[in-house]
Each structure stands twice: as C-alpha cells, then as structure tokens.
Design a protein around this nucleic acid. Structure first.
Length: 424
RNA sequence: CGGGGUGUGGCGCAGUUGGCUAGCGCGCCGCGUUUGGGACGCGGAGGUCGGAGGUUCGAGUCCUCUCACCCCGACCA
C-alpha cells in the first residue's frame, strides 16, 4: 500500500480524551476512530491488525476441529427467558430494543442460548457429538463505565467457542485441548510468556474453577497471584487458603501481579442444554444431558493489550505476526533515481509476498521516520541518494536502534525468511 | 450508579474581577526556498465558544437545567 493513498494521517499530539496508552497510540497512528466511550471503529491499518489477530485465533480453533459459524446480534427474548438471563435484575448489562410492533429484542452480549438453540435442530444422537463451534463477532454490553481504550468497551470483538460433549470425561479432554489451543494463540501473538492460565471463580453454574488467561500488565484491572515456576496463577477472587490447598499451590511461591483478562474458559455443565431441552440419545437409546464448555477470547481487547505492551516512547512496535505491514519503505527526496529505485523495490517486495507500506509522500525525512516508528512497522527500509551511492538500501528493525546498509536483494531475502517463519 | 475533572476552528490549547472585531501552536490551501529525525518565508481559508433556558446595556466568562468525554470507586452473570 502506498502511503500517499492512505486516507488516515498520523497526529503529533496525543488525543485529549484518552488516558489509556493503547487508545492514545492507536488513535495517534490512525488505526482506530473513537465513536463514543467504549466504542471504536477500525480504520484501514487497524482493521488489518484486528483481522490478523482474529485469523490467528481462527486458525488455532480450526486446528482443534472448531467449526466456524456466525450467530446474530439481534436476539429473541424467549430463549433467554428459558435460562433466566433475560431479566435486567439477573443480567444488568443487556442492550435491549424493540420491533416496530413492540416485541422486545436483545442485542447479543454472549451466545450460549442462541448457539444451543440453533444446534438443537441438528444434535440428537451420540453420533452427532462431540463438537466444537465458534464465531468471531461483535458483542454488546452496557457497561456502567467503559474505560482503558480497547481494554473495556461496550462494543467489542470476541471469539466465543462452545464445546458439546457426551460425558464429563469427554468434556474434560475437550476443555484441555482448547486450553492448549489458547496457549498457542498467545504464543503466536508474542505474549505467551506474559500470559498465565489463571484459576478463577467458576460462576453460578459450577462449583469448579473457571480458567482465565491473564496477561500481566501494569494497567491490568485484575489482581492475580502468579506461580512463575509452574506457570499458573490464581485470581484474587478465589485466593483463599482452602482453594490454594485444593489447587496444590503454596502461598510462598505466589507473587501478586496485575493482569488483563484476554481469555476465559469455563465449564457450563448442562445448564444451557438442559434449560433449552437439548439432549442426545445414547447407544442404549436413553436420553442424556450434554456437557458444555465455553471459551472466550477478547479479540479487540487483545489488540489493545498488544498496543499497550508492544510500544515505546516513539509509538507502537508490532510483532511481525500482526503488524499492518512487514516493512516500511521510505523514499527520501524526489530525485529521479531514488524514485525509480524505490518504486522498483516496492514491486519486488510485493512480488515476494512481503507486505509493504510504501511512503511515497512528498514530506521530509523526519516525518517519514517518525511515522514509521509511530505506526510500529517491524522493519524499515530507506532509499535515498546517500544509500544509492553505495548501491544499497538502509535497513532497520523497529525494535533496534542500529541501521545497516544492505543490498536490496539481501533485504528481500531476509524479509522473506522472517515472514515465512511467522506466518506458520 | 456515587465522587472528582474537562468541553473554545480538523487536532492540542490560552482567554484576568463579564466589555467592544474570540486568540496561539499544529494541521489545511496558494506561491517560493528547502529535503537523513516531524523545515522556513509570504499570503489565505476555517469557530452558532457542547446544547437549551435565564440574568445583563453587554455572556466564551455569571446562574439553572441538560448532553458528552476522562479519571477514581462500585459493577463486570
């Protein structure tokens, strides 16, 4: 993509109405647009990042057999009444609306009920199970207070997956398989080491723990107690002596940290399937309850977490796997030879499947460097009269201060290798 | 939802105890000079001062109501 054609522009100053670093940076770099508190639009570069994150999540869910579908945002009241989750006294962050004829509708805040209801058309036999289904889609929650940019919104993108198993053992296997997939996702996003599987409250439908995935961060809302050695953590909400004993954890190994909940998986038992009258018939012809699990990942929240974590005083520093482009090609000056060489390299990079943001604008070098840094493109290539005199181009990693002069072909080869590794 | 703060050209801000044509920086448009870390000169365009009502000879400034945004807390099934 040529920067001269991109409609977004970077800003020199941080927006006055954002305190959260992730929102400040993403707005400054032109990745997102604030529509209202807790509601953000994704502009071209931000949309690329968001889609890349979603794709990594998608690939890992598909890898364990997840079948993707997409449920609706508008929700009928009746299925939610069956599980007693329609009443505002029970679930207070619904957005609700009405049809012209007065019929009440809900605006989807999660999708256990509609998923189970839809699956009930198909699931009748033990032969139809087990099953994972998932979707990546906008959710709407009427939070009393939106905050922290992309970390806590009223409209946000979430991946929600549901497992349906025939018995507890099968459920447990599926649950652990999904947990492994989650670790894969966070590893690929570059926050694997920072992200802990965390014991948390299981909610109203189970006496078991749920598992949160908490990414350690100073701006986190949650307090978690981390056992770095065993790579597990305990949310403070269940941090009691009795629970620690149950979990086999020692208080002296645990360190209090702040975390951002990037994912949450929990056992649903048969609460939803039973409530919606969805059962399967076993081998002996008897009706049995379905055991469900639920697996969420905050996709847009992850974008905020990555922006928050992978940044410095100059701006964003995207990991290669989710960057809006692999390389920023800056052409300095409009000298004929420079333009020719830069245009040529732009084409070569594209031909090599390397995503390139070509700064072909007629602006000063300093602005190009500043923008390359602010946007956080992993690599930067500069072509100028100076580099052409050497017959080379300048190469620099965003995360590194060192620049080096390299032959254009060597740069292409290097980027090819790098991007191939990351796109696995 | 309780507490605190803020709303003034696209963005960031100033505007005194009410006073006359509402300013500054960035950005934008035109011309020229510039080109390795956000250049410079000259000339321009752009604002119902969040909204409504009120007090006053006169309101960006005072009063009432209201909307929005930020932060702390509570909440987050």
């Amino acid at each position: 993509m040529k920067l001269s054609q991109l409609f977004t522009k970077t800003r020199k100053q941080v927006p006055a109405d954002e305190e959260a670093r992730n929102a400040q940076l993403l707005i400054q770099a032109g990745f997102i647009h604030k529509e209202m508190a807790g509601v953000y639009a994704y502009l071209p570069l931000g949309k690329i990042v968001l889609d890349k994150i979603a794709n990594i999540v998608r690939q890992e869910m598909q890898a364990i057999g997840g079948q993707e579908l997409q449920m609706t945002t508008l929700q009928p009241k009746d299925i939610w009444e069956k599980t007693d989750r329609w009443d505002d006294a029970k679930v207070d962050n619904w957005f609700k609306t009405k049809l012209a004829n007065g019929t009440e509708l809900g605006v989807g805040l999660t999708h256990e009920e509609p998923i189970v209801d839809a699956l009930s058309d198909y699931i009748t036999s033990y032969k139809d199970l087990p099953l994972y289904v998932f979707q990546i889609q906008s959710k709407f929650r009427n939070e009393l207070r939106a905050k922290s940019g992309l970390l806590r919104g009223r409209e946000f993108i979430m991946k929600d997956m549901y497992s349906l198993a025939r018995n507890q053992q099968e459920h447990t296997e599926m649950y652990e398989t999904a947990a492994k997939a989650y670790s894969q996702v966070f590893d690929r996003l570059g926050i694997g080491q920072l992200t802990y599987r965390t014991y948390a409250d299981g909610g109203i439908f189970t006496d078991k723990f749920s598992d949160e995935y908490q990414t350690l961060s100073p701006v986190g809302e949650d307090t978690v107690y981390v056992d770095q050695e065993r790579r597990v953590a305990v949310n403070e909400e269940v941090y009691t002596d009795a629970n620690l004993k149950k979990l086999g954890l020692n208080k002296k190994d645990l360190v209090a940290k702040k975390g951002i909940e990037v994912g949450n998986i929990f056992p649903l038992e048969s609460k939803y399937t039973d409530a919606l009258d969805v059962y399967y018939t076993d081998e002996t012809g008897h009706q049995q309850s379905i055991i469900m699990g639920c697996y969420g990942i905050g996709v847009s929240r992850l974008m905020g977490v990555l922006a928050e974590h992978f940044s410095d005083d100059k701006g964003l520093v995207w990991p290669l796997a989710v960057a809006p482009a692999h390389v920023y090609l800056a052409r300095l000056g409009d000298d004929k030879e420079v333009v020719k060489a830069a245009d040529h390299l732009y084409q070569q990079l594209q031909a090599a499947q390397i995503e390139v943001l070509y700064d072909d604008r007629d602006v000063r070098p300093g602005q190009k460097f500043a923008d390359a840094d602010l946007m956080g493109i992993p690599y930067r290539v500069v072509i100028s009269q100076k580099t052409l005199q050497e017959g080379k181009v300048e190469f620099k990693a965003r995360s590194d201060d060192q620049t080096s002069l390299m032959f254009a072909q060597a740069v292409i080869d290097k980027l090819k290798t790098e991007t191939k590794e990351k796109s696995l």
